[in-house]
Deep mutational scan, measured.
Amino acid sequence: HNGKLCKLKGIAPLQLGKCNITGWLLGNPECDSLLPARSWSYIVETPNSENGACYPGDLIDYEELREQLSSVSSLERFEIFPKESSWPNHTFNGVTVSCSHRGKSSFYRNLLWLTKKGDSYPKLTNSYVNNKGKEVLVLWGVHHPSSSDEQQSLYSNGNAYVSVASSNYNRRFTPEIAARPKVRDQHGRMNYYWTLLEPGDTIIFEATGNLIAPWYAFALSRGFESGIITSNASMHECNTKCQTPQGAINSNLPFQNIHPVTIGECPKYVRSTKLRMVTGLRNIPSIQYRGLFGAIAGFIEGGWTGMIDGWYGYHHQNEQGSGYAADQKSTQNAINGITNKVNSVIEKMNTQFTAVGKEFNNLEKRMENLNKKVDDGFLDIWTYNAELLVLLENERTLDFHDLNVKNLYEKVKSQLKNNAKEIGNGCFEFYHKCDNECMESVRNGTYDYPKYSEESKLNREKIDGVKLESMGVYQILAIYSTVASSLVLLVSLGAISFWMCSNGSLQCRICI
């Protein structure tokens, strides 16, 4: 991952900044910058967002509201009850120091605090018919004063009620008058409520006091790749198909172990950190130390980045220098085999997901714990399936590479015959000098055995068991695999060879 928040398929997220979902939807004055928000790819909250409900109280069923919003990608904020005409018999300019803005008392931008007009609070009834052709999110509140005197001074009615009804919602609220500790300079409380109004449905408000009335509502448009994440990451000019709280993932790998919460087309989250597919040879310690064997393909974004291909070729060293050249036929066979294998694994496992966190309130801790156990169970199954699949494929890959290298080895052996000696570690020792032209003939299969047989015969008789390297004779190393990324691999195959001279070296080696 890149540690950044990015656009998702070209669409920017909605960053709530210092506000949370509650503050944004109710219209906390400190969240005025969010009022123009219309569309987004996903919503970003920060872990310690401080601006929620400015007048103390709870947004009821907040967790369910977050779940609903996680599939919303755009909205239209509109005046559901026009301020100047909807409440002619009531005062609608209630403000509070708890919702101060720029040093002055204020109130929510989407709600109206209705109080008595003169000395009376006549029963009010108002309704709205949803003609938007889509779901409408309606929010309101109920004020709970701290004393009967406060109730009387604001609403005149000691036994007030609030009723809200639609086809799918029907509740009646009565204020709970009680002494409470002071929070944000208030002994009173406000509880906030919401409902989704279906197209064509009607919502009716009736009250004799204590109503925090809707002013603006939201017509919602769903987008199934949307979601809500909690993150401290910063926004950058970048684009992605998959976003996590820790950063964007741009990967076609089937798995990731970065974060379980994802938005967009994302690899499946697994616990494993070692889900690797081999593309090189079986481990040979001396070669492995030099980083030549054991190439791997990573299938977990965050564990290993991208696929690494092994390729086969020849390396030689003689009086004229040293050089490398790919054996294109065996390399292409290996590439085709690995590509098919990788595609097979991805096809089997690479279903892209959006995974969002589930919200539970403080009273639902047991449910949250149960949900976590269920999620953990599914996660263990996914991890096991992934590891088992790759384990089985790896064994076949190792066998496949062994065969490829063996074929190259036999190709060289059949040409050199007794003009060189096998020394048991995949290397041959020449009994004759071999210049670049000679080396090329070994690589392309045109090695002239009779041409060098007499010199080889004489050297075999002279050496008589002495280690060949100390006599200045020449080696050919018969097994060799270097490691390159897919891009470098293609470039390498396009070149005939490249040279690395070893000044004054008397050794001649050709490596497979």
Rank of each mutant, 00 (worst) to 15 (best):
S231Q: 04
S231W: 07
C238P: 03
N239M: 10
N239T: 15
C242G: 08
A248Y: 12
A248E: 11
Q256K: 02
H259V: 04
I263W: 02
C266S: 04
T273Y: 08
K274H: 10
R276Q: 01
I284C: 09
S286D: 05
Q288L: 02
Y289R: 12
G291Y: 07
G294K: 12
G294I: 02
A295I: 02
G298H: 08
F299L: 10
W304T: 01
T305W: 00
G306N: 04
G310W: 11
Y314T: 05
H316C: 15
G323V: 12
G323T: 11
A325Q: 01
A325N: 02
Q328Y: 12
S330Y: 01
Q332F: 03
N333H: 14
N333T: 12
A334S: 07
A334I: 02
N340V: 11
N340W: 03
N340S: 07
K341Y: 00
N343L: 10
N343H: 13
S344G: 09
K348M: 13
N350Y: 09
F353S: 08
N361W: 06
V374K: 08
D376V: 04
F378T: 02
N385D: 13
L388C: 06
N394R: 01
D399H: 08
H401N: 01
H401C: 04
D402V: 07
V405T: 03
L408T: 04
E410P: 00
E410F: 09
E410W: 07
V412M: 11
S414P: 02
Q415D: 01
L416H: 04
K421N: 15
I423E: 02
N425Y: 15
N436T: 15
M439F: 04
M439A: 01
S441F: 11
V442Q: 05
G445D: 10
T446F: 06
K451D: 00
Y452P: 05
S456R: 07
N459C: 04
E461M: 07
G465N: 12
M471H: 11
G472K: 06
L477P: 02
A478H: 09
V483C: 13
V483G: 02
V483F: 15
A484E: 01
S486Y: 08
V488T: 15
V488P: 08
V491F: 09
L493S: 05
A495R: 03
I496Q: 01
S497D: 00
W499T: 06
C501L: 13
S502I: 04
N503T: 14
G504E: 05
G504M: 03
S505A: 09
S505Q: 15
L506A: 06
Q507E: 08
